[in-house]
Design a protein around this nucleic acid. Structure first.
Lengths: 335, 335
DNA sequence: CTGAAAGCGCTAACAA
DNA sequence: TTGTTAGCGCTTTCAG
């Protein structure tokens, strides 16, 4: 392993000069710089990032902590984060927490031990609630969720608005018994529930307790909850789910019961996925600008790393309602 | 930031003793150990991993270099890798290369600079071909692709066999004009083509040049290539694609042309995805044990890190053929 | 079983 | 503009 000493010797300068050339290149005579670069080239020298980190007390790595990379929303966000980080010369450290507060704490601590430059984090409600008390030694940007009134950079969807529009869309298309399956681990699920409720109330309706449920944000939970909904004495005529995993479970359940979409029940959800536009009928949904979310979060983080004192910023993005067949206007029926 | 010195002082011992207690705990009197642990607890001390790395010349981080985390195959593999690494106390550094050999080289170098303990890598054909000449200072486990006769640990599917079975399945179900869309960047695409060809030959058929194409392993390329296939004077009666992205593009094209699956054309592919079982008809495919692949690769890597001299191992896994509606037996037709 | 001391490779004062 | 020097926080000989 060739070190900075070898380069210094080969170029006939001190290690400090090599370091100068490689870091900013300022305050070095052109000819000396040339000699150093030549030695670097010849020896195929690459600075040891670990040593650099230890000395400078900062790394070129950022952390991304999400519940599960297999959730298409996070898959896409993570790709954007990695792209953007790469462009700016940063690497990416990835963690899955499974919405488990303990794992969140472990990973947050690991990030600290690794001395990362910053972290992009999508916390559970529990961790979000205690967020103010957790003072990390690195900047954090929150994505997809909200964290009360803590002073942090945040990038998320206008969830209440999005759910409101999605629900209103159903109401306008003639649906009345609208059920909702909301993720129970995040603020996001709660907020989307609020938008749903608000839309119903605006219409003079109220959500029925047995039709609006908070469940684990997973496919199986979506399947189970939908089965129960469908087996009720007064099953819903429309179902709203707050993420694509719940929707996939719901769709499976609806298919298994032999029900038609939207004839027997409409289905709408959040998050664009490959399957949502490929199934018949295609699924109406609120598409999040996932790539933009990841990109914006990373940019915000890198700016804060560069300038820790800058005022925090909350970026609230609007979802795009994609109206498709799964919520086609209901035929008028007697009663 | 509390350091090992603070702990040493608080416990009334030397830093060496603290280090001993924290690393293996051996050769330390029980009472001293207790005092040290107490101090650690009290001060909420956490070892600085960067300093530890610099000194010990090894990290607890492994790298994962794939073409695109959004490919469901890699999404699932990466989750398994992260899980397994986490269990063993390792962190994960994630890189997307977009099948770009330059990016592959950059990331491989970055891994070296970061002093990672090892890397799990899915290389392009180009990089795989030169693999023997690239002597990394860290262990590498190759996944999903093969690398000639280099001495490396590898975990991959028996691609020839899988494609052979998939094609044979089509033949047995009465399809004769079977087209194939294969990824052009990886050895995997080539191998799957071989299996496809072999199955045809076994049946006394030969792949038609205009029906077997190597294309970029992306949805758009799958769409474009399928459109061309369908517009030919003698369109195929079945289409095999070698990954789920190509399949998604193919399905879109088939739908757009208003063709029925499998009536007008059968569609089969590789990789289980959410959508493959949700569309109508569901898609026949070879399911790869993605989680097992990621897990096995990680275990292999960690074993090699622990024992660099151990003999290399090639783990070849069989795919599972899931027969579904998209390749239902063809009705006998005159001609 | 424990401590002293060297040094991993680099950067950043401080001198010159 | 350049070199000297002192560590960053930790592990690991080597003595004792």
């Amino acid at each position: 392993m060739v070190s900075i000493k070898d380069v210094a010797k080969a170029a006939g300068v001190s290690t400090a000069t090599v370091s100068r050339v490689l870091s900013n290149g300022e305050h070095v005579r052109a000819e000396v710089r040339r000699r150093v670069m030549e030695a670097v080239e010849q020896l195929d020298y690459r600075p040891n990032l670990v040593a650099r980190s230890l000395r400078s007390q900062q790394t070129n790595t950022i952390g991304l902590i999400v519940s599960d990379i297999r959730n298409p929303f996070f898959t896409s966000v993570s790709r954007a984060v990695e792209d953007t980080a790469y462009e700016k010369g940063f690497g990416l450290f990835l963690c899955n927490t499974d919405e488990n507060p303990e794992k969140e704490a472990i990973y947050l601590n690991l990030m600290r031990d690794e001395n990362v430059a910053g972290v992009i984090f999508s916390p559970t409600r529990q961790t979000a609630a205690n967020f103010a008390s957790f003072n990390a030694p690195f900047p954090i940007v929150i994505v997809d969720r909200s964290v009360g009134n803590a002073e942090v950079d945040v990038v998320l969807l206008d969830n209440v608005d999005a759910a409101f529009r999605l629900t209103t869309h159903l109401l306008e298309h003639g649906y009345r018994r609208i059920a909702a399956l909301c993720g129970d681990m995040s603020t996001t699920g709660k907020e989307r529930y609020s938008g749903y409720e608000k839309a119903l109330r605006t219409c003079g309706l109220a959500p029925l307790a047995e039709q609006a449920k908070f469940v684990q944000p997973r496919t199986e939970a979506g399947y189970d909850a939908t089965m129960k909904l469908l087996d009720a004495s007064q099953p819903p005529d429309a179902l709203l789910t707050t993420n694509s995993l719940l929707a996939a479970g719901a769709l499976q359940a609806i298919r298994e019961r032999g029900l038609a979409i939207p004839g027997d029940i409409a289905l709408v959800t959040f998050d664009e996925t490959t399957w949502a536009s490929l199934v018949q009928p295609p699924i109406t949904l609120i598409a999040q600008p996932t790539y933009e979310i990841g990109q914006t979060a990373t940019e915000l983080l890198l700016k804060r790393i560069a300038d820790p004192g800058r005022p925090t910023r909350q970026v609230i993005l609007k979802g795009r309602l994609l109206e498709r067949g799964s919520s086609a206007a209901r035929r008028q029926t007697a009663g």
